[in-house]
Design a protein around this nucleic acid. Sequence first.
DNA 1: CGGCGCGATTAAATCGTTCCAATGCGCCTT
DNA 2: AAGGCGCATTGGAACGATTTAATCGCGCCG
Lengths: 336, 336
Amino acid sequence: MAVAQVRDVAALAGVSPATVSNALNHPAKVSPATLARIQAAIDELGYIRNDAARQLRAGTNRAIGMIVLDIANPFFTDVARGVEDVLIADGRPLILGNSAQEPTRETSYLDLFEQQRMSGVLITPVGDVMDRLRRLRDRGTSVVLVDRMSRAKEFSSVSIDDKMGGRIATEHLLDMGRRRIGFIGGPASLAQVKTRLAAARAAVDKHGSGEIVFVETETMNAQAGRWGAEQLLELPREERPDAVFAANDLVALGVLQALTLAGVRVPDDIAIIGYDDIEFAASAAIPLSSVRQPAQQLGSAAATLLLDVIADPAGSKVKHTTLKPELVIRRSTAGA
Amino acid sequence: MAVAQVRDVAALAGVSPATVSNALNHPAKVSPATLARIQAAIDELGYIRNDAARQLRAGTNRAIGMIVLDIANPFFTDVARGVEDVLIADGRPLILGNSAQEPTRETSYLDLFEQQRMSGVLITPVGDVMDRLRRLRDRGTSVVLVDRMSRAKEFSSVSIDDKMGGRIATEHLLDMGRRRIGFIGGPASLAQVKTRLAAARAAVDKHGSGEIVFVETETMNAQAGRWGAEQLLELPREERPDAVFAANDLVALGVLQALTLAGVRVPDDIAIIGYDDIEFAASAAIPLSSVRQPAQQLGSAAATLLLDVIADPAGSKVKHTTLKPELVIRRSTAGA
DNA sequence: CGGCGCGATTAAATCGTTCCAATGCGCCTT
DNA sequence: AAGGCGCATTGGAACGATTTAATCGCGCCG
């Protein structure tokens, strides 16, 4: 007997396996006296239920899977913490996967979640996974999109208004008198990037003067930011922007480093605004203006919504919650 | 038939379920022709294996569980990325849990991993979990400690030399002429805190002059750092330190913020050194000196070691790998 | 005094896959 | 030509829990 099983516990407590199972899963069905005896037996043997067997017979896995875009980005860890808080309160384990913006990894986590018959999945998609998600849902796994709305409105989602975020960031730069704005981020296929960029262009158009220079990066970390800044610096003097709108704060910090290193004065020569308002934005060498996203709130809203969907999968219809971002002005875009 | 099962695939391909299983798990045992037919059937039906059933029968779960101290700390996400890289190469899913320095949460993740019969667990312990880990190991789950050595040397581990780290940070401050050093971090029960603090005290003793003022915090984030700095500022003028050694960079950044806000000049009035050398340390308002820990390397070493242990659980004996930290000097401790 | 009902308990079936031992079959050896 | 060998395949048991329907005991009511 390598490890104790229900039948061992049952034998020790002098009851049948079925009663032990009831004690564990439907305590109300078991008399207090037997309950106590069973509990004692469990403790004595150090019995731990085999979740695979339970899941197989019961047909459900309580766990929730979550796939984030980039675990190294504090924005996503904040979201994850919001999710965690809600799920822990509901007694459900959270399985966290990091796609690192790679469709391959995203797919392999989806495979895992599908094989495990998770009861729910939270995902910020990178690749084209709508088919996969549909299949997941058909199999009984509830799905909620995080920080992204599905075009076809098939899935419930929680997101932050990227259009507004892109707009207010750009308007702020224009208000500060900047005209040539470098937008750094990517890949352009990412919904967040696409929307923020489009909103920036729209804001410039509406303003009537100004211009957006798009530098597309492969990912969105500080290294990409440094690379993006170098691209801008290679432009002929007259094409060089007087402001940078970075698609997230990691990129913005990278831009700031590269510009400073190259002797460019921030914000005098080039202003910088980031996105997310991660904790480190405020303590940067030149405190970073940014578009604050309520990350933890986003996470808890997503988790709450997911639990609703799980409770009533067929129920009502698809819901979309949109939170508002907020402009945070700091020194990196201060007036000249 | 809600979802396709092996028997459906088998029927469609005109073979028995056992052959389908072999095709999936031991492809070499199946002839190429049948393999192709089965693959076609799988694709057509969109068959996804039920992992619970597989696990129950096979008796093993390939997944690895990892419990980190604080998902919001870039140091730990870097470690996690190192782990992920190694595991993905080995085709094993990583299940990431965040204890957030709370023993309760740590325990509930251990419960989960135990119920799931994980093949391995990586953990940076908060609470007193040695008994739990022993039980896990007795049940066949391999365990490797991350960033912490077990006193009794029961478990293999990978860590970074905290004694050396504490020493070099302190010696650096002493070299720069600082004498009263505030050490901020906690709780004191955390091994990392304990060791770094002891090493700092030892360095001061050896130097013959100087003094350590310990401010114990409940956690190790920027907020704790701000609080810790306020404690120091409340000291009478003559007891106020001329340097702060923060137990990690998040704390250090908090200290920096609070001191700057209070009009204290860094490093002139008070020098600051952090620990971990997270990416954001370099781009701080006043670039932060720190003790660099090779986080990703730590993670990949831990994962590699864990895979070794899994491959041969009884094998040889307990192994400890210790990596060396490195002093990184920046402006926050620059000469007066 | 017998039957009924109710709560507590149980025997046995079941979940979907993998593993083991055995089978079938064609080909080589003697 | 018979026996043996190896490869591909298969039937059926087994994994460890939960669930369902049936059983048991006991008090209460008619």
